[in-house]
C-alpha cells in the first residue's frame, strides 16, 4: 500500500507536482495516465525515493520515506526506459542486479528471462538487443525477486503485440501475488484491461478516474 499525501515538488520555481494525494492499494494494478509532462514520472520518482518532495509525504507499507527509510524496502522499478550495461549479456545484467537483492537464484533469473520472452537471448550481449528486447529485460529487472512495490513507467513502449500481452500478464501475476503495481502511461487504452485503479494526471495534479474495477479475468 502506498499513500501519497499532499506532495508538492517544485524544480527551479516550476511546480512539477501540485498537491498530489493518492492511495495505491496492494494487490492491485494502479494506472496513472496523462499527457507528456503531466508529472507521472516525477510522481513515480518521488514514490521510489529518488526525488525528495518539496513538501508532503509518501508512506510505503506504513513506513514514511526519508524519515523511516530512504527508499521503499522491497521495490522494483522501470523508469524512463531500461538502462543496462551493453557489454554484458542480458542474463549477466540481471545477475549483477540480483546481487542487490536477497535470494535470487540463477534458476529464477533463467525462468524470468523465459517469462518475458527472451529465452534463447539471455546470453547475448545487451547492446545487440532490439528496443523491444531491452524493454522486456527492463520489465524482468523490475519484477525480479518478487518485490512488494513495482513502479513501471511506460512499460509497453517499443513492445510488439505479443510483448504487450506478456507485460500485462506479468503485471497481473505480480499483482495477484500481493504486490502494489503502479503503471504510468500516456496511452490508457493499452493497459486499460489490466487496470484495477485509475488515476489521471494533468499539470502536476492528480484525480481519481474510477473506483476499483473488476478485473478483466473475473
Amino acid at each position: 500500500m502506498v499513500v501519497v499525501d499532499e506532495v508538492f515538488k517544485t524544480i527551479r520555481s516550476v511546480p512539477v507536482l501540485d498537491g498530489v494525494s493518492a492511495e495505491f492499494p496492494s494487490g492491485a494494478v494502479s494506472v496513472l495516465t496523462g499527457p507528456n509532462g503531466s508529472g507521472k514520472t516525477m510522481l513515480l520518482r518521488v514514490i521510489a525515493g529518488l526525488v525528495r518532495p518539496t513538501s508532503g509525504s509518501v508512506e510505503v507499507d506504513g513506513r514514511k520515506l526519508h524519515r523511516d527509510a530512504p527508499f521503499p524496502e522491497s521495490i522494483g522499478i522501470l523508469l524512463e526506459g531500461p538502462a543496462f550495461i551493453g557489454s554484458l549479456s542480458g542474463r549477466d545484467n540481471l545477475r549483477a542486479l540480483a546481487d542487490l537483492r536477497e535470494g535470487v537464484s540463477d534458476a529464477q533469473i533463467d525462468d524470468l528471462i523465459a517469462r518475458v520472452g527472451l529465452a534463447g537471448f539471455g546470453r547475448r550481449r545487451y547492446r545487440t538487443y532490439s528496443l523491444g528486447m531491452r524493454q522486456r529485460l527492463g520489465i524482468a529487472a523490475a519484477v525480479m525477486g518478487a518485490p512488494s512495490l513495482i513502479l513501471l513507467d511506460e512499460p509497453t513502449n517499443a513492445l510488439d503485440d505479443e510483448g504487450v500481452v506478456m507485460a500485462k500478464g506479468v503485471m497481473r501475476a505480480v499483482c495477484d501475488a500481493g504486490a502494489t503495481v503502479i503503471v504510468a502511461t500516456h496511452d490508457a487504452d493499452v493497459v486499460q484491461d489490466v487496470a484495477d485503479v485509475r488515476w489521471r494526471m494533468a499539470q502536476g495534479r492528480i484525480s481519481h478516474v474510477t473506483g476499483e474495477e473488476g478485473r478483466r479475468h473475473e
Binding site: 525515493g49 529518488l50 524496502e73 538502462a83 543496462f84 542486479l97 542487490l100 537483492r101
Partner: peptide
C-alpha cells in the same frame, strides 16, 4: 561507471541498494 551514471543504471542501483 554505469552503476553511478544518473543517465544510466544509477536510479535502479541506488534504489535497490536501500541506502544512499
Amino acid at each position: 561507471d554505469p552503476l553511478h551514471d544518473p543517465r544510466h543504471m544509477q536510479p535502479l542501483t541506488m534504489v535497490l541498494s536501500g541506502s544512499r
